[in-house]
């Protein structure tokens, strides 16, 4: 891997944000709107705190962490779509750039988006609802890192599908992550899932992060065990997805799809 090629792609995407209000809005607008709506719902539900303790903490914390995963996935997929929309894939892959360097650059972009979104949501939650995400304490860092990696797993998977099936599959960039939401147990514990769905959720690293978060907040769970599962699953799934991305890339080269995608 060559650093100059990775930074070239990162700069190419950062240049986009210099003069594009819609792209800047994409980072700030939706997370802000999410927070406002879920914040009001949380305030309403907080009236019943006596029945379910820690409502505000659970919901707003979960919402912010879910957005970490969502933006991490988008950082990869939208970066690929930007290349597709501008019909730039030919320029990139007829250069010495390797697919792994391209992926590394999109991962850096996803970290950029996650940092922006987390700052916006963290500050807004504190200003509007007097809620600090830091209440999770030092556990926050490994939880966030794991969610970023889970976002990469879904992002690389979705990008491979878009590369394979072309622009008609671009809707997956926004919808795929929501397929994982029910089994990520963002707003409810894994216990509430039907028995047949529990093993599926157990194989999803995000579910372990959210279980771990609830454990920390209620001081009842075992975050270390969940964190261990999340790390192990993330390593396994990310390795598999990167291998699959390379395989799809080779398939697309063979079928001439790289030069047709985006047309």
């Amino acid at each position: 891997m060559k650093l100059h090629r990775i930074t070239a792609i990162v700069f190419r995407h950062l240049y986009l944000y210099r003069r594009s209000l819609p792209r800047i809005m994409e980072i700030f607008y939706w997370p802000f709107l999410d927070l406002v709506i879920w914040g009001f719902i949380t305030l309403y539900l907080a009236r019943y705190q006596t029945q379910v303790p820690g409502f505000v903490t659970f919901f707003l914390g979960a919402l912010i962490l879910w957005d970490v995963l969502f933006r991490s996935q988008q950082g990869i997929t939208i970066s690929f779509l930007e290349e597709l929309w501008s019909r730039n894939l030919m320029n990139l892959f007829a250069s010495p750039l390797k697919p792994s360097e391209f992926l590394a650059a999109t991962m850096i972009m996803s970290i950029f988006k996650v940092v922006c979104v987390s700052l916006v949501m963290g500050v807004c939650a504190w200003l509007f609802y007097d809620y600090s995400i830091l209440i999770i304490g030092l556990w926050l860092l490994p939880f966030v890192l794991n969610l970023v990696v889970t976002g990469w797993v879904i992002g690389v998977f979705t990008t491979s599908l878009i590369m394979r099936f072309g622009q008609e599959a671009e809707v997956l960039a926004w919808s795929m992550v929501f397929l994982f939401q029910p089994i990520s147990c963002v707003f409810y514990p894994m216990d509430v899932l039907p028995v047949w769905l529990k093993p599926v959720a157990w194989a999803n690293p995000a579910a372990h992060v959210f279980e771990g978060m609830r454990g920390v907040l209620s001081q009842s769970g075992q975050p270390v065990e969940h964190l261990g599962w999340a790390v192990g699953l993330n390593i396994l799934l990310l390795t598999a997805m990167i291998a699959w991305f390379h395989r799809t890339f080779a398939y697309c080269r063979n079928q001439g799809l790289l030069v047709r995608v985006g047309e």
């Binding site: 100059h4 070239a8 792609i9 700069f11 501008s86 320029n91 010495p96």
Partner: peptide, 21 residues
């Protein structure tokens, strides 16, 4: 062929220059 439409001419050339080191 095309090049990234939202970048200026000079920005596009800078990206290419970085890409090739």
């Amino acid at each position: 062929m095309s090049m990234p439409q939202s970048l200026t001419v000079e920005e596009n050339l800078w990206v290419v220059a970085r890409l090739y080191g």
